[in-house]
């Protein structure tokens, strides 16, 4: 079914998605959008792993993707809880407000 698609297509697509995630992390000031861009980067890596797994006929890569999903879910839960407690203290999710460690 997939032999008509060269693997370079998947390499290019996942690289591009990863770079969009990086640009989003650098571009936005809202901490929730930054977390979403981190999710985007994780998904780009997942897509790359699945494509290598499919083209090399080995399902180890799909197991790795499963574990990445586990870690991503845990990360989002803890990150959003942190954001809620930050919002309670400073009434904002702007990352420029959170510069107290700068001294």
């Amino acid at each position: 079914m997939i032999e008509t698609i060269p693997q370079h297509g998947y390499l290019l697509l996942s690289t591009f998605l990863f770079c969009i995630g990086v640009i989003g992390v650098l571009f936005r000031r809202n901490a929730i959008i930054i977390l979403m861009c981190v999710e985007l980067m994780l998904n780009a890596v997942n897509l790359l792993l699945v494509s290598f797994s499919a083209y090399s006929q080995n399902s180890d890569g799909q197991v790795f993707v499963f574990f990445i999903m586990v870690v991503a879910a845990a990360e989002v839960a803890v990150g959003l809880a942190l954001l809620v407690s930050i919002y309670r203290n400073v009434m904002s999710t702007d990352i420029n407000v959170l510069s107290k460690l700068k001294g």
Partner: peptide, 15 residues
């Protein structure tokens, strides 16, 4: 890695 992939490596059974 340009082999045509087998279709059953992504099934629930194999994973």
């Amino acid at each position: 890695y340009n082999l045509p992939p087998k279709s059953e490596i992504g099934f629930v059974q194999n994973v």
